[in-house]
Simulated assay, not measured.
Amino acid sequence: MASSIYAAMGGADAVRSLAQAWHRRCLADPILAHAFHAGVHPEHTDRLAAYWAEQLGGPAEYTAHLGTYAEVIAKHSGNGPHEQMDGRAVAAFTLALDDAAIPNDPDLRFQLIAWFTWATAMLNHRWSDPEDVPADLSLPQWGWEGTQGW
């Protein structure tokens, strides 16, 4: 077994391919596309890939150069419940695993889907108001045993 989920899925190229595939699926979905109606950063998928990579055991590029976990959480907080959107985001992620040719190892796929489901809930629903997000949050890591302290 690889030392990290990041390594098992194929490293930076695999994570970038997954972020691109997921984002394409989101834009093609009438419900998920709503989240992007105001536009996104021109390097959104590269930034997303760096964020995912770091959370899955890859290099700390996101927090070293692009932003903090607290900033990401605050940006996504305060939008109220949206269970249908969350479920569709997870479904799009699951399909994007094949689009991105992520290895079809059952343990790897289980961990990726469990992580994305958890991360979606944390990102969108742990704090109901962006002002409530603690400024000193560290980016949680997800490994073969899940995450600790969350």
Rank of each mutant, 00 (worst) to 15 (best):
G149L: 13
L112A: 02
D129G: 02
A7V: 11
H37Q: 11
M1S: 13
A49F: 03
E61L: 12
W22Y: 08
H34F: 14
F36M: 08
G67L: 04
F36A: 05
M122V: 12
M9E: 02
T63E: 13
E145G: 12
A28Q: 12
H37K: 10
Q84M: 15
L66R: 04
F110Q: 12
A70M: 08
Y69T: 04
A101Y: 05
Q55C: 05
G78S: 05
Y62D: 01
D105E: 15
A114I: 05
A92P: 00
A14E: 00
L112V: 07
H125L: 08
A19L: 07
W150N: 14
L56G: 00
D107F: 07
Q55V: 02
G11A: 06
L123C: 06
R24F: 05
Q141P: 02
E83D: 15
W142C: 00
M85I: 07
T147L: 05
W150A: 15
Y6L: 02
S128N: 12
W52D: 01
A19K: 03
M9G: 03
A135H: 09
R88C: 11
D29T: 09
L18D: 00
P140D: 11
A92W: 01
D99K: 03
A64M: 09
V15E: 04
L56P: 01
A74S: 06
E71K: 11
F36E: 11
T120S: 14
L97F: 02
A12C: 10
A33V: 14
L56T: 04
A64K: 06
E145L: 11
A101C: 13
G39D: 08
R109D: 00
L32T: 01
D105C: 12
G143L: 03
R109C: 07
P42M: 03
K75W: 11
H41I: 09
G10M: 02
L18M: 13
G146A: 06
A91M: 07
P30D: 14
W127M: 01
S138T: 14
I73S: 00
H34Y: 13
E71Q: 15
I102W: 01
A12L: 09
E54K: 06
Q84E: 15
Y6V: 04
Y62N: 00
A2H: 10
N104T: 09
A121W: 14
A38T: 10
L97R: 00
P59A: 12
S128C: 10
A33Y: 12
A101R: 08
A119S: 11
D29A: 06
D105L: 13
H76T: 08
L137R: 05
F93K: 02
T120W: 02
L32R: 01
G10R: 01
E145D: 14
